[in-house]
Nucleic acid binder design. Structure first.
Length: 288
DNA sequence: GAAGCGTGGCC
DNA sequence: TGGCCAAGCTT
């Protein structure tokens, strides 16, 4: 048993945030919806959308029975709206192939649209208490600091990192599941990227990075995305026009939204290819 | 393995 | 101000 276990688990028991998808009796569907929404998106922005989503679609089948466009509209401004399409597609698979019940194994979850290694492990662990290495950006940062003595983990997960994470995973299923959410929480609220609050950390005295004097990251450059002026921004603007409209929008409305014709046409084509928009009649665009 | 994919808040 | 960051997935 790692020396980190007891202080981290004790800290989590006392300091965990009260989040809807963590409450006792929460459905696996609620957990699944939260995991989709939390991919690359802060908790505070997910909270209201998650609440409205679960009220409107309390089960996967309820969502699957509506057009995908309703999911895109309800997604609002969470960002990366393809996640809404994938969540709808996953709900459809659950309805048609799993009897409307969220599957409880990693492999079945991983097979769902929009579910990768992290999300499959997270749902299996948080909703079903199964033992998995749950490697998100928070856990990776906590382990990089406490165990590897580095400010940040490598740009991509490698075999050594995964084995290291597995080596400190508690043996019992239930302990492992709590460990996973506890290390995530520690990374989210204490061992943060920009301003780690080491004075509030339950394992500061065991932390290799702190012991080394908190040396600055010296690995490969970490990628930072541009946004202003990119195709992504253009797509967001165009989709926003349709999302906030009633019914199909004429092409002129989109042309007025983004004046660089070449980029606008490329973005529009991409939205159609991705299925975020459809063209019900020539020159008109709507949600699917 | 790199690139593409939204949005908003913070310092 | 603008770079940085936020529970990744797909191609």
């Amino acid at each position: 048993m790692s020396d980190l276990h007891q202080p981290v688990l004790r800290w989590y028991a006392e300091h965990q945030r009260d989040l809807p998808w963590r409450r006792p009796g929460t459905s696996a569907w609620s957990v699944m919806v939260s995991e989709f929404m939390l991919q690359q998106t802060p908790v505070v922005r997910v909270l209201p959308v998650h609440e409205a989503w679960l009220e409107r679609w309390p089960t996967p089948t309820a969502l699957a029975d509506e057009p995908a466009g309703e999911a895109v509209r309800a997604w609002g401004r969470l960002g990366y709206p393809r996640r809404a399409l994938r969540l709808h597609a996953a709900a459809t698979v659950i309805r048609d192939a799993h009897g409307g019940i969220v599957p409880d194994t990693y492999d079945e979850l991983l097979a769902l649209p929009g579910v990768g290694d992290y999300t499959a492990a997270a749902i299996a662990s948080f909703a079903f208490g199964r033992r998995h290495v749950v490697l998100d950006t928070n856990v990776r940062r906590v382990l990089a600091r406490t165990l590897a003595g580095a400010e940040f983990p490598a740009p991509a997960v490698n075999k050594a990192e995964r084995e290291l994470a597995g080596s400190v995973l508690p043996d019992a299923d239930e302990d492992a599941a709590v460990w996973a959410v506890a290390t995530m929480e520690l990374g989210a609220v204490v061992c943060t990227a920009a301003r780690p609050a080491c004075e509030r950390c339950p394992v500061v005295d065991l932390c290799a990075w702190h012991a080394a004097g908190r040396p600055a990251y010296d690995g490969p450059a970490r990628k930072v995305q541009d946004y202003a002026g990119t195709d992504r921004q253009c797509r967001g603007r165009l989709l926003g026009v349709v999302r906030d409209a009633d019914g199909a929008v004429p092409r002129g409305r989109l042309e007025a939204e983004w004046h660089l014709a070449e980029q606008r046409d490329r973005a529009l084509a991409g939205l159609l290819t991705d299925g975020l928009l459809v063209e019900p009649e020539p020159g008109y665009y709507a949600l699917p």
